[in-house]
């Protein structure tokens, strides 16, 4: 019993926090009709920013939790800015969403490498100590409560507020929505901003809580793991937070379960195989017309001026 408790409080919490936040952010962005294939790049980028911010802030403010918390907040804001640029360009340019998404994904990888290495460069010269978030029972409990709160807030945002109605509407039928006077680009800009905050928080916690450090390529593919969770929860915030418990556990456990009898090399790939399997299963489930349905404009180019 205490082992189970220990698992949830200590081992799972950091991973759950990182993946769930990124998955919730993805839900908001994709509900607005923007295909978020840049998520992995953004996740890499935000985990690098978190590290570098933490190093720089620790140098300025001295080591301590304050620097870490500010680094988390700054990372979220930075990611939000990049993400809003992404969703805006995706809407304003008549270029396929696949092309724009790939561009930002690679740009995120590359920029992430540069940003993280700047932090490491500073570290190699200054040797500042970063106060990474520790794992305590109480800390984890607070984190779980906050995560549930974030999930509920995301739900309220999408389904109870006018902004959420706008976001879902531009994800369904941007042409009609623009006819009633709503600016599609602005709405998607806001969706990118809000979703980006969550993805950035996820990336920051990945570096500053789950890993506690940074190395080249950190976060690579973990953005996709979050993406799969988001799909598995049908981009519906409450469901996303719920299924994330299961998938985060899988991602954490699978590479280490030797009892599965899998060779170590293969078991490292198991989370990826699981993610693909999840996306397949979810796509197979019929759900047209329901609240769980895929946004109809998802991935489609949006042209503003056209003759009806």
């Amino acid at each position: 019993m205490s082992e189970v408790l220990n698992w949830f409080t200590v081992a799972l919490a950091p991973a759950y926090a990182a993946y769930t936040l990124a998955a919730l952010g993805n839900a908001v962005i994709e509900r607005s009709g923007v295909l978020n294939i840049a998520i992995d790049g953004f996740f890499v980028l935000s985990s690098a920013f978190a590290y570098t911010y933490a190093i720089l802030l620790s140098q300025v403010l001295g080591s301590g939790p304050l620097a870490t918390y500010i680094a988390i907040a700054l990372t979220a804001l930075t990611t939000a800015v990049f993400y809003s640029l992404f969703t805006t360009l995706n809407t304003a340019l008549p270029v396929s969403q696949g092309a724009v998404g790939l561009s930002f994904m690679f740009a995120g990888y590359g920029l992430g490498a540069v940003v993280g290495n700047i932090g490491r460069l500073v570290f190699s010269i200054q040797r500042v100590r970063v106060d990474y978030l520790g794992v305590t029972g109480w800390g984890s409990a607070v984190a779980y409560v906050l995560l549930v709160a974030v999930a509920i807030l995301t739900h309220l945002l999408l389904y109870r507020l006018r902004l959420g109605v706008l976001i879902r509407a531009v994800g369904e039928d941007p042409r009609v929505v623009s006819q009633v006077g709503v600016n599609v680009t602005h709405t998607r800009f806001l969706a990118g901003l809000i979703g980006g905050l969550a993805v950035g928080l996820g990336g920051a916690l990945f570096t500053l809580w789950r890993i506690g450090g940074w190395s080249q390529g950190q976060g690579l593919n973990h953005g996709w793991l979050a993406y799969a969770i988001s799909i598995a929860g049908w981009r519906y915030p409450l469901l996303v937070a719920l299924v994330s418990v299961f998938f985060s556990s899988l991602y954490v456990l699978l590479p280490h379960i030797q009892r599965l009898g899998l060779p170590i090399e293969i078991s490292m790939a198991v989370p990826y195989i699981v993610s693909v399997a999840v996306m397949v299963l979810v796509s197979l489930a019929p759900r047209r017309g329901s609240i769980l349905a895929e946004p109809r404009a998802l991935g489609r180019e949006y042209f503003r001026e056209e003759r009806a």
């Binding site: 006018r162 706008l166 509407a169 709503v182 806001l190």
Partner: peptide
């Protein structure tokens, strides 16, 4: 959707 007089955070 169409009511611009309502703020984005209106319920």
């Amino acid at each position: 959707l169409a009511l611009r007089s309502y703020s984005l955070l209106a319920g």
